[in-house]
Nucleic acid binder design. Structure first.
Length: 596
RNA sequence: CGGGGCGUAGCGCAGUGGCUAGCGCGCCUGCUUUGGGGGCAGGAGAUCGGGAGUUCGAAUCUCCCCGCCCCGACCA
């Protein structure tokens, strides 16, 4: 394959585009790979489309190698299947909707679970047909409230989505594992550095869902890793470690105190330490000694709502994402003045365990952070304005209706796996881009769409499913994020738009003839060549373009040609060497094959 | 949806009441230069986001609208 820069549809930009913030967006636009069309909607130019198809090819090859079968659904879908799963409604404003000339409703597919499930239901009805894994590489549409970071989060994007169909839990586990292995091979070939994190808390069952997060500071996901073991999880899925319970004997009795002018945790702690009769003997009070009771209103899909109070140490905030994940399908909304008026038992700013719990007159559900174990003593609200209760002991003076693990996760928090094993391991936080997600859907979905097969005893059994996704267009951006320097992109070979960027410099006709000859020889031996055969373009421009575009090997045919040599530079390492023109083809071809 | 910022040539920007709207890059023509975005000369390219208003006069002031970017909310 030979690409001539003299005719290539390309215009590199000398300056950064004003609307691009993150490196991948900036460089992909500057190097002439993509152009923005609308918010979150991009066109792929020749170089960019080549890179895109390389990523797509790697995905397809690994899916095929794993034995999965490719299908292709339309992006334009009728309303009916999505009505059957209630997603026409549930998807809300994120769904691109349209109507045909008769007024019939259509949508642009945001994901295709319905279509896959119904297709299998349509054609298969025996356990003998399973297991089955189908996949497609499809353009997806989601009307994101805020697309961002170029092609990292678009409204139109390309995704590989697969679905597995099994009759047994063990079968699902095996299908899941096959996908996991295929994903590892896929992302390794793309030279992405990533972490596989648990996307569900341990309580909900271990490996049922994992995300592949490419390490990247501008990524949208926050995850934790243990410094001593291999535990890794999305922050939404981290299980907090409860401290050991404290014996109740000898703990001071609870006492209610006037605490005027203490609207915040800080002022409350300051007052508690300032007044001698309230101070602790062993150490000063900390914010973490206060029990903060956060009230939210939980709205259920049927429209009903009820207050929920979460009790947690005062030095931590409730992590909204974690809370939402736990409350699904309910949705937490802010508790407003009108809500307080409707629940007089809740004294704003002074809510305490004394008024809380399903068994109390007010009947308000009260859930506790795992750190509020038996024997811990707290300063907390006394359910009267201007008063707090001190030395209120969990398990002695109050209990919750249960536990809820929704406090923010912090750098340095203990690792749950290490804690369970009696080791000391701490969590560190990092940001990542979600490039893949594997998920054991189970039977819930098949039940909703009535996907059953007959088993060997002739009984109807509900199929169990897995769903698996790779963001193909997003992977292009993720690779760009991880493979660039201050001069431009630095593609891994398999992803790069060419293997060799052959630059002819100067105005000596012999240089161009030699470059043409070299290019022809390389193409002959199977090397993909991009030849900068532009006349009258200064060497500086050509060098800068070659570095910006990021092809892994740069070969310069120029002033050294009179000595019979050309220069070969590794884009990633910057290493360069001179090579005799005679035999340069085989030398370069060998170096190309040795590239990562 | 809340907060912030920005809309002037293909791109990056200057111009805050004055007559013909400017600079750099890019583009076209000619000459020159050829190992790090070179030089000289000439040229094309703009409904100054849109509308309404104030004024002798509006890119500039006022009002309304639209769009884009960033942060947050949201995100199978």
């Amino acid at each position: 394959m030979l690409t001539r820069m003299s005719t290539l549809f390309l215009r590199t930009l000398r300056e950064d585009p004003a609307d691009a913030e993150v490196p991948s967006h900036r460089l992909l636009v500057r190097a002439g790979y993509v152009r923005r069309v609308a918010p979150g909607v991009f066109s792929w130019l020749p170089l960019g489309y080549r890179v895109f198809r390389n990523v797509e090819r790697v995905v397809r090859e690994e899916m095929d190698a794993a034995g999965f079968q490719e299908v292709h659904f339309p992006a334009l879908l009728p309303r009916e299947p999505y009505e059957r799963t209630n997603r026409w409604t549930e998807y809300g404003p994120n769904l691109f909707r349209l109507a045909d000339r008769r007024g019939a409703d259509y949508l642009l597919g945001p994901t295709h679970e319905e279509m896959f499930t119904l297709l299998v239901k349509d054609l298969y009805s025996s356990y003998k047909d399973l297991p089955l894994c189908l996949y497609q590489i499809q353009t997806k549409y989601r009307d994101e409230a805020r697309p961002r970071a170029g092609i990292l989060r678009g409204r139109e994007f390309v995704m590989k989505d697969s679905y597995s169909f099994d009759t047994t839990d063990a079968g699902l586990e095996a299908s899941y594992q096959r996908h996991r292995d295929a994903y590892i091979r896929t992302f390794d070939r793309m030279r992405l550095q990533y972490t596989i994190v648990s996307a569900m808390s341990g309580a909900m069952g271990g490996s049922a869902s994992e995300e592949f997060l490419a390490a990247c500071d501008v990524g949208e996901d926050t995850y934790v890793r243990c410094t001593t073991c291999d535990y890794a999880a999305n922050v939404e899925a981290v299980a907090s470690v409860a401290p050991p319970p404290v014996p109740l004997d000898g703990l001071p009795a609870a006492h209610v105190e006037d605490t005027p002018d203490t609207p915040t945790i800080e002022t409350l702690v300051a007052l508690s330490n300032a007044r001698p009769e309230l101070a602790r003997a062993d150490r000063p009070w900390h914010a973490g000694d206060t029990l903060k009771n956060v009230v939210v209103k939980v709205v259920q899909p049927d429209g009903s709502s009820a207050p929920l109070v979460v009790g947690l140490p005062g030095d931590r905030e409730v992590d909204l994402k974690r809370l939402e994940a736990v409350l699904l399908p309910g949705e937490p909304v802010a508790f407003e003045e009108a809500d307080f008026a409707a629940h007089p038992a809740l004294v704003k700013g002074y809510i305490g365990p004394g008024a809380l719990g399903a068994d109390k007159p007010a009947g308000i559900r009260y859930l506790l952070d795992p750190r509020v174990v038996e024997g811990t003593r707290w300063i907390t609200g006394a359910n009267q304005p201007g008063r707090h209760v001190f030395d209120l002991v969990a398990g002695r003076d109050f209990v919750g209706d249960g536990w809820i693990d929704v406090a923010e996760v912090r750098e340095g928090d203990p690792c749950p796996v290490c804690a369970a094993a009696g080791r000391e391991g701490a969590l560190t936080q990092a940001r990542g881009i979600e490039i893949g997600h594997i998920f054991q859907l189970g039977r819930k979905y098949a039940e909703a769409l009535d996907l059953t097969v007959l088993d060997e005893h002739g009984r109807q059994v509900v199929v169990t499913m897995g769903s698996y996704g790779i963001g193909v267009s997003r992977a292009v951006a993720a690779i760009a994020e991880q493979h660039h320097d201050d001069k431009g992109l630095v593609w891994p070979r398999e992803i790069a738009p060419a293997d060799v960027h052959l630059v002819a410099t100067g105005k000596d006709e012999a240089v161009f003839e030699a470059a043409e000859g070299l290019a022809a020889g390389l193409v002959e031996s199977g090397v993909r060549v991009m030849l900068d055969d532009r006349r009258g373009v200064s060497p500086g421009v050509k060098f800068n373009d070659s570095e910006l575009i990021g092809v892994p090997l740069i070969v310069v045919v120029g002033k050294k040609l009179v000595d019979g040599v050309v220069e070969v530079k590794d884009r990633a390492s910057g290493e360069r060497r001179d090579l005799a023109v005679d035999g340069a083809v085989s030398g370069i071809a060998a170096q190309v094959r040795a590239l990562p």
